[in-house]
Design a protein around this nucleic acid. Structure first.
Lengths: 335, 335
DNA sequence: TTTATTTTAGCAAACATTTTCTTTAGAATT
DNA sequence: AATTCTAAAGAAAATGTTTGCTAAAATAAA
């Protein structure tokens, strides 16, 4: 079993002091070129790499950042994490992952631990329960301890932190307007997340775009049976010409209801989903979807954090970055 | 801004030595009950928590484990990670996540870094490229450095490490036999991962179960057009009565081809997918699927690692744990 | 009372670094 | 020849813990 060599051991082998070795490896001008070379040669030979834990202790940095994810099964968050990891890798930082499972308690517990010094900064998409109960003390606590926080995706509440997300209202307004522009009048919206922050915003955008004289058609329920009922009413009784969906579950329900009532997509019904591209492309018919560019959100969040880590005091106020979304037309909106 | 209090500061406040404080907090019998109480009280008042970096340096442990994931967009791996995180949390360990993107180079780079001492152990599902090129030196290197390695999901190759996965051959053989038992004779298999380790095993299981006199029907291609062609041949020309799919892409292709050729599922065609339960339940018709219990695989992997961390030398040989899979019948196999 | 024993707490080393401060030796200046 | 200066390297402190050893005080035994 190989064991890592230390400065002390190198020093002994070279018959010089520990500090000389350290300085030589860090190209200090205090050390002669000759010794530097001698030291570096032996260091390379033994594949010396400084013990990160010792370096961390000395520098009182951990070289790691914490990422809090509400729900990793949601491929959106998985892809955000992927972006975060890529950017962290580039910056030489380690990513510690925590999953809150949308629970406030778990989130608190995580934040509490993080104040102990495990990480230099935190990226968080706050849990659903946290938003609902509007309890943000644990996030303030992080800030109190001087740990920079960046909010991603779920950003519509007041906390002194940098943030990155999309314009939910604008996105859904634009999508709705796009359908109107094609001459479609009866547009519905299906959602299972109407009680959540982002859900509300998306519905707001939909409503905002519809002309005053047009009815709203909304199928909203987190309970499957109820959603099914409301969706069927919207499709069969109200006979909407298009449905915009705010999330995975509602998108799938619309597809199922259309199938069961032999409503053809896209001939009889246009559908726009808010799902990932993998799924959108593979469903039959493929679903036109709103791309949120999750990886970009991840790298962007990480970049905001890096900026803070490099000069935390320079700019006190939180910066906000809103990413553009993009409607990708596939089979479900063919005209 | 709050700042963390140290043993030294507590000691000064209490007018005792640092070691007394440390011992008191760790309930050393060397310290009198009176002092212990005094120390603990003040520690609680100041919310003292030992600096994890310093503890790590002293114990030459990092208290973290590394998880290498080939592809996080695959919800299977996302769910495994979820299981790992939950179990790590329970064990008081931090999880550092690395994404290899199925690339050998990235995997090497990660392992190289890990030998420096960032983690106490590693969980890895080896990248596709790594398996194909059969280059495992970087994994041996981890072992060399005394870092316990646990393989998960992709485990069919020879490396001295603990491992956890499913019985791919047995699972697919059982599923095939199940269909045969229902009187179905012409059974096909669709796959886009036939060149990968697990893909081969799954096909092997399928073949193993079929009676000698029965033909194999295999639609295998990683290229979409080619897969489409082969799938259509299987469904339309060969008129198979059932298709077993080894992965997400092939499952979706079978659904699309069936739809386009108005082949009704399950009346004309039974389909069994190898996809996650979220998707399986939400598709129309819902797809009978093979549940791999990803979260269990995650917790199981973590448990194997914990066992190693607690007594690394006790049992030298690698232990293997094979998880049971379960075929969940939904609409696509209704009789 | 003296010696032995036990309790209690402090000292100092150790973990692997980095960095400031000193020392030493040789060269340059007077 | 004496002094100053500079280059190079070492000593030591510091980061925050833990822990083996030592010292002192308190208690018990002789």
């Amino acid at each position: 079993m190989k064991n890592k060599i230390t400065l002390k051991e190198l020093a002994k082998l070279l018959n010089v002091s520990i500090s000389t070795v350290s300085k030589a490896l860090n190209d200090s001008p205090e050390i002669s070129a000759k010794t530097v070379e001698r030291v570096k040669e032996l260091a390379k030979l033994h594949n010396y790499r400084p013990n990160p834990v010792a370096v961390n202790l000395k520098s009182s940095k951990s070289g790691t950042i914490g990422v809090i994810i509400p729900n990793i099964s949601n491929s959106f968050f998985a892809r955000v994490l992927s972006g975060i990891e890529a950017e962290a890798q580039r910056a030489g930082l380690q990513v510690i992952t925590y999953i809150s499972n949308e629970k406030l308690d778990r989130e608190k517990q995580i934040c509490d631990m993080l104040t102990t010094g495990y990480v230099d900064g935190v990226l968080i998409a706050v849990a659903e329960e946290t938003q609902r109960k509007k309890e943000f003390d644990h996030l303030y606590q992080l800030v109190e301890y001087g740990i920079p926080v960046v909010l991603y995706d779920r950003i519509n509440f007041d906390i002194p932190a940098d943030r990155i997300g999309i314009d939910d209202v604008g996105t859904f307004a634009d999508v709705t307007k796009g359908l109107l522009a094609k001459g479609i009048r009866k547009i519905g919206i299906a959602t299972t997340i109407h009680h959540m922050g982002v859900g509300k915003l998306r519905i707001e955008g939909y409503k905002e775009a519809l002309p005053k004289n047009e009815n709203y058609y909304i199928a909203n329920s987190a309970r499957p049976e109820s959603l099914k009922e409301k969706t069927e009413k919207m499709l069969v009784k109200d006979k909407v010409e298009a449905v915009i969906c705010t999330d995975f579950e509602s998108t799938m329900q619309v597809y199922r209801s259309a199938f069961e009532h032999t409503i053809n997509i896209p001939e009889d019904l246009k559908v726009i989903g808010f799902i990932g591209k993998e799924l959108a492309n593979f469903l039959t018919p493929s679903i036109s979807y709103i791309d949120q560019f999750p990886e970009e959100m991840g790298t962007g969040a990480m970049q905001l954090l890096e900026a803070r880590l490099n000069n935390y005091n320079k700019d006190k106020s939180g910066t906000e970055r809103i990413l553009k979304t993009s409607l990708v037309h596939l089979e479900s909106t063919k005209f």
